[in-house]
């Protein structure tokens, strides 16, 4: 039997398939305007990729902010529970997760069986999220994928004091006009996000081993800034962006 998890996030929609407890396929598409259509598409493509038929015996759990829009899912589970299950699946030593997604960030404390003991989400504000980084990348005319590597070259990270996306953008623009090097501005952005997320983690009862999940975990510069702010090493799985979908597939196994 196959189990599939579909994670409909604010920017990307992810899917993962498990067979007999082994990860056999993943897929990712942009969510766009219609989250239900994105969920359907990511699922159909995934099945094509791993070569199984939609009529096969498949249990499906949907998660992410669009979780209730999928009518073909067997169950909807919040991304908090799914990230916990996914991180535990990837490494059962993990006791704390920082998930940085497109529109919010979460700090999740796990017990030794991988169950959620406590969690905190940021406010409705986009500061410290993927969307925040996208806005900054646009202001700096840099591809977001190059953000991490570039920031590692910084000699002297700039100070970004504002926590608000809109105000931080205008701070960045005034740094640009002062001629501050891009890598220093980017490193400054990462440090401001890092310290904000460190505060969130502390409130949720930060402990180790720690894993960072979500799309933003692919940004090596941000991970370094976050580790510095936390004073801890963080584990980043190659499946960081897919952790929620993987967790949903794991939980579908219990249905």
């Amino acid at each position: 039997m196959y189990t599939v998890g579909i994670d409909i996030g604010s920017i990307t929609t992810k899917a993962a398939a498990l067979q007999h407890g082994k990860l056999v396929g993943t897929n990712l598409v942009f969510t766009g305007y219609n989250s239900a259509a994105a969920g359907k598409r990511v699922f159909t493509e995934l099945l094509q990729n791993i070569g199984i038929n939609e009529t096969a015996d498949i249990k499906i759990v949907a998660t992410g902010y669009g979780r209730s829009s999928l009518d073909f899912a067997d169950k909807a589970v919040t991304e908090i529970t799914c990230h916990a299950a996914g991180a535990y699946f990837l490494n059962d030593k993990i006791r704390f997760i920082i998930d940085i997604g497109g529109q919010d960030s979460k700090a999740i404390l796990l017990d030794d069986r991988g169950k959620v003991k406590n969690f905190i989400m940021n406010d409705k504000c986009a500061a410290g999220t993927g969307r925040f980084l996208e806005v900054m990348a646009r202001a700096l005319e840099i591809n977001l994928d190059d953000f991490g590597a570039l920031s590692l070259l910084a000699q002297n990270p700039a100070q970004i004091s504002s926590l608000c996306t809109v105000f931080a953008e205008s701070e960045v623009i005034s740094l640009i006009s002062k001629g501050v090097a891009r890598e220093n501005i980017i490193a400054g952005i990462h440090e401001s996000i890092g310290s904000r997320i460190a505060a969130l983690a502390a409130r949720a009862g930060l402990t180790t081993p720690l894993m960072v999940t979500g799309g933003v975990a692919k940004n090596v510069g941000l991970i370094q800034a976050l580790e510095k702010a936390l004073g801890l090493k963080a584990e980043v799985s190659e499946y960081a962006q897919l952790t929620g979908a993987i967790g949903a597939a794991v939980l579908a196994g219990n249905l």
Partner: peptide, 23 residues
């Protein structure tokens, strides 16, 4: 949950409450 008199971002509120009930 921190709330205001003005209408909330329903999605986030829902996620927090559902996740709490799951835990």
């Amino acid at each position: 949950l921190e709330v205001e008199d003005q209408p909330q971002a329903q999605g986030q509120l829902k996620t927090r409450i559902e996740a709490f009930l799951e835990t």
